[in-house]
Nucleic acid binder design. Structure first.
Length: 427
RNA sequence: GGAGAGGUGGCUGAGUGGUCGAAAGCGCCGGUUUGCUAAAUCGGUGACCGGUUCACGCUGGUCCGCAGGUUCGAAUCCUGUCCUCUCCGCCA
């Protein structure tokens, strides 16, 4: 969320920002309510002050009669205070409903508009390879090489679940291992995170844990939800804490399963492994000083590029348009990898995403840092980025690395982890 | 899962209804002293939300895990909840 005071002082700017993001929020109304709330709050504090003074005087009262009259006075003051508090609660409820919808500010270079306005920043090092043979999609390839059991997954847990088998398992482990090795070299602390998280944390990171628009599975009779990404657990790690300035930046990478209800998604675009209810992901997360976050964002994006370049997969990098950003993101880059089997003649499909959330998440999660030698604290900046989302990376690998003879050459950097060079080698 | 104990400032830890934002010690910051360091000694030392000020600052409120309740008044009493520790049970 944004700083309340900042909103009051920049009503027009915040309103405009809502508009470019396609968010309906009545900022002037919020400002009005917030101003009222502040006035009331001051009145309450004055009443509290008086009541406190009265209470203190009771201990020193010289006789019972005076004591009793002072008690009356105290009661009266606190009742009056409670009245005003009820007013505040009412005003706050309306104000907060608006406040919670107000998204983060937007980077100056972010293109304005909807999904189609997102701007291509660059391409990866590897060109799309022309294939002079009938191209199979990953579902066909997986079937041919017995890599995924979709029917089995559906029988166990329903559509959107699957068993990985054989080399797909090795490939998944290899992707994780390769990525973690790379990130550890870059100074990230590797973590394996909980797959469940409390409502409070889920909400703090910016996801909606329950209710009609949720994308999150929740556990009945528990204050717990299956995480949709390790962003939730890594971001929540320091909730409510004050970090030391010299600890920053903190770079974490976490392996977790990711569970998504994917309500309302269906069709060919979600065929096979593309849109599933569970997958495994290595996520990068960073806590930085405010003036470090932009550099960190570019760094995370470059790491994503490095990973996909290393895998030998063609991709493009998009600067995501304002209307397509989630609430917490100030700027977002997506990597879309070339998937030859997607659509009728191949399409790019999103494989990773990195966001700079500036202080928006930190304010919700109450993550601060203390400046050396200065009074007070300030909110950190948080950033997240996908290092590798296994299901989609596997699609890109299977489809891009297929050969005329139907075999699949395993990306060189993964071969030592998989223990072979090719899936379905012809003798 | 069952039984018990406990959660207080950066840390250790006192505090069982009022003058307690909270003793004391440690740590940290500053001064004095001292060849240097150390020691000694004196003073200062939490966060958050407001008001006021050009600013140093001054000032109100809130915070003793969290949320409620009782009371004129709660760190202290009551309820719920989360967490930690010990013992028992179960278990990869």
């Amino acid at each position: 969320m944004l700083d309340r005071r900042f909103i009051l002082e920049n009503v027009d700017l915040v309103q405009q920002n809502c508009e470019i993001r396609g968010v309906k929020a009545d900022v002037p109304r919020f400002a009005q309510l917030e101003t009222e709330r502040r006035t009331l709050q001051q009145e309450i504090e004055e009443l509290s002050r008086q009541a406190n003074a009265v209470s203190k005087s009771i201990g020193k009262a010289k006789d019972d009669a005076e004591r009793e009259s002072r008690k009356q006075e105290g009661r009266r003051l606190r009742e009056e205070k409670d009245q005003k508090q009820a007013d505040i609660d009412r005003i706050s409820a309306e104000g907060d409903a608006i406040y919670n919808r107000i998204p983060n500010l937007t980077h100056a270079e972010t293109p304005h508009g909807g999904e189609e306005a997102s701007q291509e920043l660059r391409r990866g090092a590897i060109e799309v390879r022309p294939m002079s043979f009938p191209i199979l999609d990953h579902v066909a390839l997986a079937e041919q090489h017995k890599l995924v059991d979709f029917e089995g997954g559906a029988r166990i847990a329903g559509h959107g679940f699957y068993f990985l088998k054989n080399e797909a398992v090795l490939l998944e482990l290899a992707l994780q291992h390769f990525t973690i090795d790379l990130l550890v070299k870059e100074g990230f602390t590797p973590m394996i995170t909980p797959d469940l998280a409390r409502n409070e944390i889920v909400q703090g990171v910016g996801f909606v844990p329950r209710g009609p628009e949720t994308q999150i599975y929740s556990i009945e009779n528990h204050d717990l939800n299956l995480v949709a990404t390790a962003e939730i657990t890594l971001g929540g790690l320091y909730a409510g804490q004050v970090l030391e300035e010299e600890q920053l930046p903190i770079k974490l990478c976490g392996i977790s399963h990711c569970y998504r209800t994917e309500a309302g998604a269906a069709g060919r675009a979600s065929r096979g492994l593309y849109r599933v209810h569970q997958f495994t992901k290595v996520e990068m997360f960073a806590f930085t000083l405010p003036n470090q976050s932009e550099d960190m964002h570019n760094y995370l994006c470059n790491l994503e590029c490095e990973i996909f370049d290393s895998l030998g997969l063609p991709y493009k990098v998009l600067d995501i348009a304002s209307g397509d950003l989630g609430g917490p993101a100030y700027r977002k880059f997506d990597l879309e990898a070339w998937m030859p089997g997607r659509g009728s003649e191949g399409e790019y499909g999103e494989v990773t995403s990195t966001s700079n959330c500036t202080d928006y998440q930190a304010r919700r999660l109450n993550i601060r840092y203390k400046k050396k030698g200065e009074k007070g604290t300030d909110f950190v900046h948080t950033l997240n980025g996908t290092a590798v989302a296994n299901s989609r990376a596997i699609i890109a690998i299977l489809e891009n690395c297929q050969q005329a003879d139907g075999s699949i050459i395993i990306p060189e950097v993964l071969q030592k982890y998989v223990g072979k060079e090719r899936i379905g080698a012809v003798e």
